[in-house]
Amino acid sequence: MLLELKNITKKYKNLLLFEGLNLELSEGEKVALIGNNGSGKTSLIHIICNLISFEGLLKFKGKEVKAEDHSYKHKIGLSLSEPHFFEKMKAREYLQFAAGLHGLEDKQQVKDRIDNLLHTFEVEDGNKKLSEYSTGNRIKISLAAAMIHNPVFLVLDEPFVHLDTDSRELLKEILQKLNSSKTLLVTSHSLKLCADVCDRYVILDEGSIIHDVKKADLPEDVTPEESLKNLITKKRELSSMEWLN
Rank of each mutant, 00 (worst) to 15 (best):
N37L: 03
G38P: 12
S39C: 01
S43Q: 12
S43R: 06
L44A: 03
C49E: 01
S53V: 08
E55L: 07
L58M: 02
K59I: 02
K59A: 15
A67Q: 13
D69W: 05
S71P: 00
S71Q: 05
S79H: 12
S79G: 13
S79V: 10
P83T: 05
F85Y: 15
F86M: 11
K88I: 07
M89F: 15
R92M: 02
R92D: 09
R92H: 02
E93P: 08
A98W: 02
G103R: 11
E105V: 11
K107E: 15
K107G: 06
K107N: 12
Q108A: 10
D112H: 09
N116C: 05
L117V: 07
L118A: 01
E122T: 09
E122I: 02
E124D: 11
D125I: 03
G126S: 02
G126W: 10
N127T: 10
N127V: 05
S131I: 07
Y133D: 01
Y133K: 03
R138T: 04
K140D: 05
I141P: 09
I141Y: 04
A145Y: 08
A145R: 13
I148W: 10
N150G: 00
V152L: 12
L154Q: 05
L154T: 07
H162W: 04
D164W: 06
S167K: 09
S167C: 05
E169Q: 13
L170I: 10
L171V: 14
E173C: 07
E173T: 14
I174V: 15
I174E: 10
L175I: 11
